[in-house]
Design a protein around this nucleic acid. Sequence first.
DNA 1: AGCGGTCAAGTTGAT
DNA 2: ATCAACTTGACCGCT
Length: 304
Amino acid sequence: MIRFGLCCIFRKEPIKFRRTTAKYLGRFSRRQQLANLSEICMANADALYRALQFCRRHGIKGFRINSQILPLKTHPEIGYRFEDLPSHRKIRRMFERCGTYASEHDLRTTFHPDQFILLSSPDNNVTQRSTADLIYQSEVAQWVNADVINIHAGGAYGDKIRTLNRLRREIERLPEAVRRRLTFENDDRIYTPEDLLPVCNDMEIPLVYDVHHHRCLPDGNDVEKTTQLALKTWNREPLFHLSSSLNAKGDGNPRNHHDTIDIADFPRCWLQLDTTIEVEAKGKELAVLKLMKEVFRLSAEKSA
DNA sequence: AGCGGTCAAGTTGAT
DNA sequence: ATCAACTTGACCGCT
């Protein structure tokens, strides 16, 4: 069975994750900052629980957690230790409750740190800060039983081979809690599945295969072949990404995501897989539910 | 209450 | 050398 995953937020369902800015918090005393952050983190733990409940009710068995779930956690000025939040014990219990709920109902959760998290940068400060962020996300991942922290390989810095070697060295230095959750995803500008597979295989880091990115930045392998290669990198349930171009035939940027998934973009060779497919579409839960219906129909036709 | 400017972060590529 | 794009909604401050 395919497990479909929703990414981070909702389109219609009134479940919101809160955030704040360093600039805004900067005007308050440290005590007030921490009180404010504590409140936001608690609201986010509560929102996550409600998000998981929504997913369970609707048969959506995967949920990607926003990387700002503890806002500004590693910010150079505003960053804080979790234990410094006034309500940290309660917040932690609330996240652990999410983890229990997810396990009980077979819901899979994942993290996808954003574009600034780079293990391959030649700038040591960048990789240091990135690692700090990965550690924070792995801590929350532990509470909520998330088994994936998925990132991209980063920039080319003029030499992809040298950069990937730097990436390998950086992986070896990661704490175990990060490394056993870490995955790499092919991107739409620089690193193809073919580029990443050697690193993934050697370092035992699974490949999150994004078929839309692969269509934007091909590497000579077709979808079937790459699917098979990606599957082999997984020592747990595989995870793939699916989205549809906003401008399939227009002149806009084809890398942008559409509201929904065009069923024509769903690789037929994925139909029989026991895999999580995270649906990247602006229509969020509406798009996931629509796709689930259409894929179900497709499977029924195929077996009939 | 509603609207618009703003938001931590890095890298690439257009100008 | 500079700067927008990437992607993006939600927050805050002002009206």
